[in-house]
Structure formats: C-alpha cells, structure tokens
C-alpha cells in the first residue's frame, strides 16, 4: 500500500511543470484550439506580457526599445537551419496594444513566426 502511494507521489512529482522566472505573474487566456508545438528546428523566444504591460524575457524586464533590440539580435544570431519564433505569453487582462506591439516588433525585425500562448481550456471570458 505504501509502495503504491510512493509510486503515485513519484509520478506526480515527475509530472510537475517547472516554469520560467516571471511566468507565475502571467494569467493566460483560455483557448481550446491551442496546441502544444515541439519542433526542434525552431528556436523559441518567449516574451511575457504582464497585465500592466511590462515585458519580461527570461525573467528580465525590458522596455519596448530594449525588447525590439533583443528580438533583432536574436534574429541575427538565428541560423538558417533553426528559425526564430516569438511566443507571446500575454496576460488575459493586458491591453491588446501591448501584444500588438510585440507582433509589430517581430514584423519589423523580419520574424514571421509569432505564436500566442493560451491555456488549453474552454473560454471563460463571460464568467469573469
């Protein structure tokens, strides 16, 4: 019995997803069409957009100008075989202009792949 319990605890511990620094402050919107994408040929740059419009990349806060320079630099570093993709993790309450600004920066830096992160669940906009 205790062996089974330990086995279950081990399973739960192993299945915990460890997030990046700063992720815990972002409350993602729900979208049941969101899919998990795992392509090793793609280099992901995750941009967290907080409800207050603060940009966080790898736990570091960046202004719009700094973020644009960062995306440009990463684009320049990306090889032909590993293309760059921007993942926008926007807080559900954030103003759309904050996310739109990241799309615009990506377009200006020549990055065509932009994905929007969401929780794989039915939408709950009305209930909030």
């Amino acid at each position: 019995m205790i062996d089974m319990a330990f086995l279950l605890i081990t399973f739960f511990i192993m299945s915990i997803r460890f997030g990046q620094a700063g992720e815990e402050t972002i409350e993602l919107p729900n979208a049941d069409q969101a899919r998990e994408v795992t392509d090793e040929r793609v280099e992901l740059v995750t941009v967290n957009v907080s409800g207050e419009g603060v940009y966080l990349v790898s736990g570091v806060q960046r202004s719009r100008a700094e973020l644009y320079r960062y995306i440009e630099a990463r684009k320049a570093e990306a090889s032909e075989h590993r293309k760059l993709e921007i993942v926008v993790r926007g807080d559900r309450s954030s103003r759309f202009e904050n996310v739109q600004a990241v799309m615009r920066m990506a377009a200006d830096a020549g990055v065509t792949d932009v994905s929007l992160a969401a929780l794989q669940a039915a939408d709950n906009v009305e209930q909030r």
Binding site: L28, E36, L116, Q120
Partner: peptide, 9 residues
Amino acid sequence: VEGLLTSKL
C-alpha cells in the same frame, strides 16, 4: 496544459 495558437506574420 499550456498550448500555442500558432500563426505566421
């Protein structure tokens, strides 16, 4: 589970 809405500019 977190997922992505993939898109292309």
